[in-house]
Design a protein around this nucleic acid. Sequence first.
DNA 1: ATCTATTTGTACGTATGTATT
DNA 2: AAATACATACGTACAAATAGA
Lengths: 254, 254
Amino acid sequence: MPLVTTQSKDEPRLSRPVRVAEAIKDWVVEKGLKKGDRLPSEPEMIEQFAMAKGTIREAMRILEAQGLVRTRTGPGGGSFVHEVSKQRARALLGNYFYFQDLTIADIYELRCTLEPQLAASLAGKLSDEFLDQLEDNIASYPKPAQSADEEREQHIASLRFHALLATQSKNKLLGFLIDFMTNMLADLTVYRRLYNPPNAELWQRGRDYQVHLVQALRDGDAKAAHQIMGDHMATAQTLMSLQEAEMQKRFISE
Amino acid sequence: MPLVTTQSKDEPRLSRPVRVAEAIKDWVVEKGLKKGDRLPSEPEMIEQFAMAKGTIREAMRILEAQGLVRTRTGPGGGSFVHEVSKQRARALLGNYFYFQDLTIADIYELRCTLEPQLAASLAGKLSDEFLDQLEDNIASYPKPAQSADEEREQHIASLRFHALLATQSKNKLLGFLIDFMTNMLADLTVYRRLYNPPNAELWQRGRDYQVHLVQALRDGDAKAAHQIMGDHMATAQTLMSLQEAEMQKRFISE
DNA sequence: ATCTATTTGTACGTATGTATT
DNA sequence: AAATACATACGTACAAATAGA
């Protein structure tokens, strides 16, 4: 799979640092460099590309910003091929949606189909250790929230439950998406509980879903896992729309 | 919604240009700058951040690489807030998956659920002009491919059909995902038609699906659209697995 | 703990390119 | 066509960080 360069057609013309960055990417792929492999030193690149130091440095910054290399000073230092981290991919993708009018409803629409699919795919595939970890997470919010702040924390924790599950997905794309959505919700949701005080009954239902889900996953009952997660998502979706939750507009940090 | 910064916790420490880039991002959000708005000039930033010219320039390159600013020379030139383009978001996300072992099967697993969902959501919502455009696209591959090359081109064209549909999604996240997946498939699929020569019957079935789909979309029949797209995807999924298609490893260009 | 070698990071002066008026 | 205002690129000198002796 080729590394994706970052150049569009109609746009005027690329600056030198950008072209150098592209050249380095191509070179990395061509040479089959793996993560951790060292790139040529600054002076070597200056010679190889016949560019000034500043230009080379700007090119390296571009690659660094994209998460593809990491640079260290000192002896044995230099730039190294680096695996793009999930955090950075999240952040970079998040910046795209900063300019789109993405709503919480949009995210939930996708969660409603993808989360059950993930749950079904994981039934019977999880280690006991991991299932215990899920239960620990549920145990971290043992009783209904007493305040808006507390409820917010519980909301974040329960999103963490889903992000945890996402790490186990065999399908890396599905896993990333669910992680992205939960993080987006955790980062960006601002409550506007204008008419909806914390509701013990709703809390209990959400909690029950998660408990039953873990049981279904343990039992290897894919169908039940799918069903439970689907109900859970449908409930959550309704809840979010009732609360008139809003997205906060900001750039995301890795 | 805040702009996502790009800093992780465990990692050593950020270089100055990266920190300056983050500071600029925060400043943009704080000031509520919109796309097209001008950032301070190089000399102004040098003063404002008390940094050297090179440092500021590297910071701007970082923001440029992330697609957040665009820079122009000349009078009235400078750096401007820029909406992250879909192309760039695709490329940046693609680089993440370069290091994950994402398979074609993974992508199809998601397409099987998301494409029907999109189709259903668009039934009865599309303009006649757009529906004609879809039909034009179908007309661009009027007969079965005679060679592997031709078949490859037709495959790309039929992926374009899906990308076209994606542009109409009201749900921006869903639209982006489908666009991302079709582009990933178009860019990265390498055929290995070891035992599968171009097959006229399969081609005819794929074509029929698209024709019927457009009809259902015209009629506003969401259920039929969902069904047809679901069948189409299931067929395509089988086809891809039969052809033992492989992902090519490379970085993606915008 | 200190020194030294290595490699990136910062600074700044100058010259060139480019688009607007 | 010329002047202007801006970014772009280069080259050199020096500063900071880190690993190892």
